[in-house]
Design a binder for these strands. Structure first.
Length: 423
RNA sequence: GGUGAGGUGCCUGAGAGGCCGAAAGGACCAGUUUGCUAAACUGGCGUACGGGUAACUGUACCGAGGGUUCGAAUCCCUCCCUCACCGCCA
């Protein structure tokens, strides 16, 4: 959610930035400001009346105390009409605030000015590419065929147990998954991220603070009996650690990481293009989160970008980094880098990570602040990124590393799983 | 699931209709002093939204929402949550 002060002080800048996301902000923001004038006027009136009522109540008390009952009673009558008025104004104020809030939550985050214009994923800016796209031998297969050939992943069994999108990993594959998780966590810890094992169900307040609720309600699994939600990403519980928190400035940047399973209903996205591991209802992911000083958040973003690039390099996967264009960015992001690995067998790029700076968009809802130099509470910047999500890493790895003899395990993972080849 | 207790500022914790934005202690910040892996003393120290160039000032907030009252942290109602014990249990 954008800050009111920002809209008030820099309306034109906000409009210009939002135009990059192809969002015509002028009408909404002007309406917000109009309501804001109304809100201030109403609050002024209300405050004046309440002030009078408070003064009156004090006088009544003193009169009673000194035995002047008649005079006290007289003042009492006066306060009745004040009360009526204040009630009306309170209601009016509540309505205005609600309208304003409703408008504000429809406005996406203002993208950073360096975000490229554009509407479709094709207009994302390819900012970096690394690694060699492997030439596969004749008869190379997509990962879902490899998975059944070596009995690694059983999609049908998952259907039996739960439903489509809940694969069962078996034997060496289960071990490889475990290895990846440990490898990612070890790397993150070494890079200064504090490992967190959060709950994988969250309450409504948490869902609201990171923006999954109320809009994206249908994308989360919901345990209605307890009113808890299965998390779509560790970002939700980990970021919510800092909900309603004022941290000390010298604690910044705060760096947390966590492994969790992630659950996404992905309603309405069934189809041929989501075969195999490409899109699942349950998957594993290690997430990195940073809470940064506003002056340092873009440095932090670059650091995270380099960090993720390092992981892919060590895993020997060809990858590219895209700076998302305005039209392809998420609602909450100010700048996003997507990482894609190239799957030689599917002959396409697969998104494996998304690293974003949210600036104050999340912290405004979270009320996540730090004490500035002047002792005032200032909203911190939040950032997060996948480091990494497993399924598409596994898919690319299986496909790119396949040989006639089996699937080669990247060197860095050998100590983690004790396997050099899967066959 | 049963029974009981309780939710107050960064933390501990008092307050039981007006003198309460809230005692006291701790933590924290600034200063003084003695000195040195620290102590003592003095002062400061909540958040949000308004008004004012500013000093300053108004209003709201003691889990949330209603109500009673001239006046509510304090009384009443509803909801949420936490803790303890018992039951069940990885």
């Amino acid at each position: 959610m954008l800050q009111l002060n920002y809209i008030r002080e820099k309306k034109d800048e906000a409009i210009a930035r939002l135009a990059i996301k192809n969002f015509d902000a002028r009408p909404v923001l002007e309406q917000v400001l109009e309501l804001d004038n109304d809100r201030r006027k109403t609050q002024n009136e209300l405050d004046a009346i309440l002030n009078e009522a408070n003064t009156l109540a004090k006088q009544v008390g003193e009169l009673y105390k000194s035995g002047k009952k008649a005079e006290g009673d007289e003042l009492k009558n006066k306060s009745a009409s004040l009360k009526e008025n204040s009630k009306k104004l309170e209601e009016k104020l509540a309505v205005i605030e609600e309208q304003q809030h409703k408008l504000l939550v429809t406005v996406p985050n203002t993208p950073n000015m360096q975000v490229p214009k554009g509407k479709t994923p094709e207009e994302n800016e390819n900012v970096y590419q690394e690694g060699e796209i492997p030439k596969l031998y004749d008869g190379a297969k997509p990962h879902w065929e490899l998975a059944s050939q070596y009995d690694l992943i059983d999609f049908e069994l998952g259907v039996k147990l739960t439903g489509a999108g809940f694969p069962v990993y078996k034997g060496k594959m289960a071990r490889l998954q475990r290895a990846l998780i440990n490898y990612f966590l070890d790397k993150a810890t070494a890079a200064g991220y504090l490992e967190i094992q959060p709950p994988i169900m969250v309450n409504e307040a948490s869902g609201y603070a990171t923006g999954q609720l109320p809009d994206k309600e249908g994308q989360m699994y919901h345990s209605t009996i307890d009113n808890l939600y299965l998390i779509p990403t560790a970002e939700v519980p980990i970021t919510n650690i800092y909900r309603d928190v004022i941290v000390k400035a010298d604690q910044l940047p705060i760096k947390n990481c966590g492994y969790t399973p992630c659950f996404r209903r992905e309603a309405g996205s069934y189809g041929a293009h989501v075969r195999g591991l490409n899109r699942l209802h349950q998957f594993d992911k290690v997430e990195i989160v940073q809470i940064a000083h506003p002056d340092k958040s873009y440095e932090a973003l670059e650091e995270m970008r380099n960090y993720v690039a390092g992981l892919l390099r060590e895993l020997e996967l060809p990858f590219r980094i895209l700076k998302l264009c305005g039209g392809d960015m998420s609602f909450a992001s100010a700048l996003t880098y997507d990482f894609e690995t190239y799957s030689a067998a599917q002959q396409k790029w697969l998104e494996v990570s998304s690293v974003s700076n949210f600036e104050t968009f999340q912290s405004n809802r979270l009320k996540l602040r730090f004490k500035g130099a002047d002792g005032k509470a200032v909203l911190a910047h939040t950032l997060n990124g996948s480091a990494l999500a497993l399924p598409r890493i596994v898919a690319t790895m299986l496909e790119n590393n396949q040989t006639a003899e089996g699937i080669r395990v990247p060197k860095v993972l050998v100590p983690y799983c004790g396997l050099e080849i899967i066959n």
